[in-house]
Structure formats: structure tokens, C-alpha cells
Simulated assay, not measured.
Amino acid sequence: MKVDGRCHCGFITFEAEIEPEKVWLCHCTDCQTLSGSAFRTVAPTREGAFTLLTGGVKNYVKIGTSGARRLHGFCPECGSSIYSTSERDRPKVFNLRVGTIRQRWDLVPRRQIWCRSALPWTTGIKTQQRFEMGPDLRP
């Protein structure tokens, strides 16, 4: 499936070819911290199937407990996370952040990983009160 996307401010635009059935949620603590959320939604694509059209990412290098170095590409203007990838592996896989993809409505995660780190309330999201727009949450 051909997709396109951008960062929040529009400095970075990209296109990619992805396999929608490979979209997943990651509950690892790194994804929680780096996204500022409970999990991250990821769509993998391979080198050669991902093209930056405008702008350039700034990379943050995260060294995992295994010693592996992961590059996290983000917009230097607005800070939007665009992808992560390994520093060395070939062929390189770019894990695109689904929130930056214009076709995100069509990208339903099919699996979840690092569930041992999942926050317990994430399993009951459908049972929580829902609003079409943000309610007034002031105290």
C-alpha cells in the first residue's frame, strides 16, 4: 500500500510502500517514554520503499540494553517522531510512526508487542467513557 505523511508542522514530508497487515502496537517502556503515551503504533517499511520528500530528520541515538543502537528520526522544527531504524542492519527497516501517515484510518494494528510492559488500563479502553470532542476537563 502506498502511503504518504508529514510531521506536524509540514517541514518533513515522505512517502512509503507498506504492508498494512504488519502494523503493530509497541508497549515497551522506550516507546512509552519516547512517544509520551502508553504505546506507539508502528508501520514498518524497507529501505528503498521509504523516501523523504522534503526536509530532513534529526536523529536521536538510543542505545538498547543489548547494546544495539537505534536511530530515532524526528522533525528538527516541531519534534514530531517520524521513524526509528537500526544503525547498521541491512536491508534497513524503517518503523514509521502511524500518526504521521495520512492514511492512518486504514492502518489497523494486527498485533501488539512488549505486552509485559503494557499499562494495565490499555486493555479496557473500549469500556471507558468516550466523547466526540474534548470535554471541559478543568477542575
Rank of each mutant, 00 (worst) to 15 (best):
R104W: 11
T127C: 02
R6A: 15
R104Y: 10
K2I: 08
A49S: 15
I82V: 12
T85H: 05
R88V: 15
P139K: 06
G48P: 02
I125T: 04
K22L: 15
C31G: 08
S117F: 09
K2Y: 14
A49E: 15
P44K: 00
R116H: 09
L119E: 07
E87A: 14
F39P: 13
V23R: 03
P44F: 04
A38H: 12
E87Q: 15
R90W: 09
Q129H: 07
F94I: 09
R116V: 03
L52K: 06
A118Y: 02
W24G: 10
T33N: 06
I63R: 05
T122Y: 00
G67I: 10
C7K: 04
K62N: 14
G56V: 09
L107A: 10
D30S: 13
D30P: 00
S80Y: 04
E87C: 08
L119V: 13
G5H: 03
E19V: 10
V42R: 00
R138F: 02
G56W: 04
E47K: 09
P139H: 02
F14T: 03
E19C: 09
F131P: 06
Q112S: 15
K22C: 07
T100L: 06
F94T: 05
L119D: 06
Q129K: 14
V42Y: 00
F94H: 01
E47S: 11
V98A: 05
L119K: 11
C78H: 00
A68V: 12
S84M: 07
L96V: 04
T123G: 11
E47P: 04
R69D: 14
A38Q: 09
R138N: 15
G64I: 00
P139V: 03
I82S: 07
N59Q: 13
S80T: 15
I101L: 12
R88A: 13
V3D: 10
D30L: 14
W24V: 13
G124T: 15
L96K: 01
F74Y: 14
Q103A: 13
L34V: 14
G99D: 04
I18R: 08
V57N: 02
C78D: 01
I63W: 00
C9T: 11
W114S: 07
V23K: 02
K126T: 13
C9L: 08
A118G: 03
T33L: 14
G64K: 02
V23H: 01
S80V: 13
D4H: 11
I12R: 07
D106W: 00
R46S: 15
S81C: 01
F11V: 03
